[in-house]
Computed example of a mutant assay.
Amino acid sequence: MEDILRPIYQERASQTNTLGVLLVEKKLKLSHITDSFDVILLVIVKEAEQPLFIKQYSYNHQKAAMHIITEAQLQEWLLLGTNRRIFEWLQDAKIIFDRNEYVENLKTELREFPFNGRKIKMGLEFAKLIRRYVDGKALFESKQFLDAYNYVVHSLHHLARLAVIENGLHPELTVWHQVKQIEPEIYKLYEELVKSEETLEKRLELLFLASEFMIHSRTNIGTSHLLEVLSGKEYWSFNEIMNEKDLMPYSVDLAVLIEYLIEKHLIDVVNIETKGQGVFHRCYCVHEKLS
Rank of each mutant, 00 (worst) to 15 (best):
I4F: 11
L22G: 14
K27P: 04
K29Y: 13
S31L: 09
D35L: 12
V39N: 05
I40T: 12
I40D: 08
Q50S: 11
F53D: 14
Q62N: 09
K63D: 14
E76K: 13
N83Q: 14
W89N: 08
L90P: 08
Y102C: 07
L106Q: 03
E109R: 15
R111M: 09
G117H: 08
L129E: 02
R131M: 10
R132C: 09
R132P: 00
R132K: 12
A138N: 05
F140E: 03
Q144Y: 09
D147L: 11
D147K: 05
Y149T: 05
Y151V: 08
T174N: 13
W176T: 01
K180P: 01
K180T: 12
E183L: 03
P184M: 03
E205K: 15
E205Y: 14
E205Q: 15
L209D: 07
S217R: 08
T219Y: 01
E228G: 10
E234D: 11
F238R: 10
M242D: 13
M242P: 01
N243Y: 03
D246T: 12
Y250A: 06
V252Q: 12
Y260V: 01
L261S: 02
I262R: 06
I262M: 04
K264P: 09
K264Q: 10
H265S: 13
E273D: 11
G278K: 01
G278A: 07
H281G: 08
C283Y: 01
Y284A: 08
Y284S: 08
V286E: 00
V286S: 02
V286F: 00
V286I: 10
H287E: 09
E288N: 11
E288V: 06
S291F: 01
